[in-house]
Design a protein around this nucleic acid. Structure first.
Lengths: 146, 146
DNA sequence: TCATAATACGAGTATATACACGCAATTTTT
DNA sequence: AAAAATTGCGTGTATATACTCGTATTATGA
């Protein structure tokens, strides 16, 4: 008797798809809340990271953000075109170090209360302990595949 | 699959960025594991959903997958080009209903044990109760912004 | 019945993501 | 010092995502 492979027919049993769907939905929410600042949440997080690490190379920034180097490089071009960042040569002639412009600092000041508002809504509706639990689980999850 | 280790700033305070980083890392992991099947995890989940809901319209499928209608429409073109799905007109002349090909059913049979392997690794390393807790939190999280 | 609203979809545009490949600069090894 | 390995980055290619606008079809309501 042949036993045919039983395939799960519920995509929501997939941990990855669960994560992706939540990630996309929450991203849409943050992008909508941040809209008056002209920044998307990906751009906001990149600018925050740059401000924190400046001066920083593209690869260093990518590692910090958990993104592929080439992905971040292309994302940064958008920010450069919008006059939010500039590049300058580093000590090492291979490196391009990234800098915030004053326009970016202004945009971050506009974006910050909006971002806080998004964070607050989730904290209030989900509960602070649940938010902390979620962060812990996400960190542990990433550790399982490292 | 590359694992982008974030040395500095491991705990970001942004709930959205936490989610996105985990989502991208886990997606890279699933894509790498599924690679022998020729399917990416997004494609795998789309095909599973189609098999479950067939015959289904593009909009109906998009709703089920939590994706924008136009996003899914473009994703489906890739699957059509790869001869994994076909379209046919529905009762309603506006609708395009989606169908799996036998090639897709074969690909799913190849992909299934690989997908199970990815799921198992996470279940074993994170723990079944933690996986359930994560799913609950993600569902609750999405409810907070609805 | 006819005007209007709602639905289903595609195209245009734009950002985000990442792998493979190649090149130039730097570091390490021999 | 020369060879080899590593590092930093860009390009080519491809998929994924979603917003706006336009069009055709269907449903609804006056």
């Amino acid at each position: 008797m042949r036993v045919y492979t039983r395939i799960m027919n519920k995509s929501h049993s997939c941990i990855c798809i669960n994560l992706r769907q939540a990630s996309l939905a929450i991203t849409r929410f943050y992008d909508a809340v941040l809209e008056p600042s002209g920044l998307k949440v990906t751009q906001y997080s990149a600018l925050i990271a740059i401000r924190q690490l400046e001066p920083v190379s593209i690869s260093g920034l990518a590692e910090n953000l958990g993104l592929d180097r080439t992905t971040l490089g292309r994302n940064l071009r958008v920010l450069e075109r919008e006059n939010l960042i500039t590049f300058s040569p580093g000590q090492d002639q291979r490196e391009h170090t990234v800098h915030l412009t004053s326009q970016a600092r202004l945009a971050l000041e506009v974006a910050y209360p909006l971002w806080e508002q998004a964070q607050a809504k989730i904290r209030q509706n989900l509960g602070q302990p649940q938010v902390e639990m979620l962060k812990t689980l996400l960190a542990d999850l990433e550790a399982t595949i490292a």
